[in-house]
Amino acid sequence: MSSDPEDDALSWEGDDALDARRTSPRPQKQHDIASPVDKQADAMAPASIDAQVVASDVDVSATDATDEDDAYQGTGTAALVGLGILGGIYLLYTVGWFLGGAGMQAKAMFMLPAPLYLASLWIAILAPGLWFASALVLTRGAKTWVRFTALIVGALLLVPWPFVVAGGGAAL
């Protein structure tokens, strides 16, 4: 522990152990560890087999490096902010479909029976949330631009027109 209070403020209890684990060499892979029997067999094997073994070891290590590069990096900050904004838009669409549909209910009863109108109203109310959830689930492994394309297409298709056109559906 250092005696300087400024150094104490910049450290956390246990930092030394964490740094030691980070700097320690990585354990060898199973194919890198050779037993005495393997060493004896390698000494008696012809040179062509040694070349094949070395080539196969190089291929394995090359594929290991590419697997680490292809690992999921996580969602960036900008993507999370964009998802939050689009989620808010979909939430507003849900409220808009509820208010617009409720405002149109008295006028729509002339064309549709009440059970059909209520069923279509609930489908319209649930559609934005279902689109948002399904777009997130179905594009989980896809690139970020594919996810945002699906969400933007949904935002364009699911505009609550009764609320937008008639200010809550009262004029329709």
Rank of each mutant, 00 (worst) to 15 (best):
G168N: 09
L91Y: 06
V53F: 01
A166D: 14
Q73T: 14
A142F: 06
L86E: 09
D69S: 12
V81A: 13
V164L: 15
H31V: 08
D8T: 02
W12Y: 12
R147Q: 03
L118Y: 15
L136V: 05
R21W: 04
S2K: 06
V153S: 09
V37A: 14
L126G: 09
G87V: 11
E68A: 15
I85A: 07
T75D: 08
A17S: 14
M44C: 03
K143C: 01
M109S: 13
L116H: 11
W122K: 04
Y117P: 04
I123G: 12
V146D: 02
A133D: 01
L91V: 08
Q28K: 15
R22T: 02
D59C: 03
L86S: 04
T149I: 08
F148V: 01
A9M: 10
L136Y: 08
D69I: 14
Q52K: 09
A171S: 14
P27V: 10
E68Q: 14
L157R: 11
L136C: 14
D15N: 05
D7I: 10
D59N: 07
D7R: 07
V165N: 06
A108P: 02
P25E: 09
L10Q: 12
F110L: 12
F148T: 00
A62H: 07
L112S: 09
D42W: 03
V165R: 11
A55N: 06
D50C: 01
A124C: 10
L99T: 06
A170M: 11
A17M: 11
D64Q: 14
D64S: 10
A114Y: 06
D67N: 13
A45F: 00
A45R: 02
F98I: 10
A34E: 15
L18Y: 06
L151G: 00
S3Q: 08
L83Y: 03
M111D: 10
Q73K: 15
I85E: 04
A108G: 05
A102C: 04
D32V: 13
S134W: 13
S3D: 12
V146M: 08
A78F: 10
L18W: 05
I152D: 04
G96M: 07
M111R: 08
V164I: 15
P46Q: 01
V146P: 00
A108Q: 13
G88W: 11
I33S: 02
M111K: 06
L92A: 11
S11Y: 03
D32A: 15
G167F: 09
K107I: 02
G96T: 07
A102N: 09
L10W: 12
D59H: 08
D50P: 00
A43N: 00
S48T: 02
I85H: 03
S48G: 01
V54G: 02
L91N: 01
W122N: 12
T149W: 00
A171Y: 10
A135W: 00
P160I: 07
D42L: 07
D7N: 09
K29I: 05
P113E: 13
R22C: 08
G141Q: 13
G82V: 05
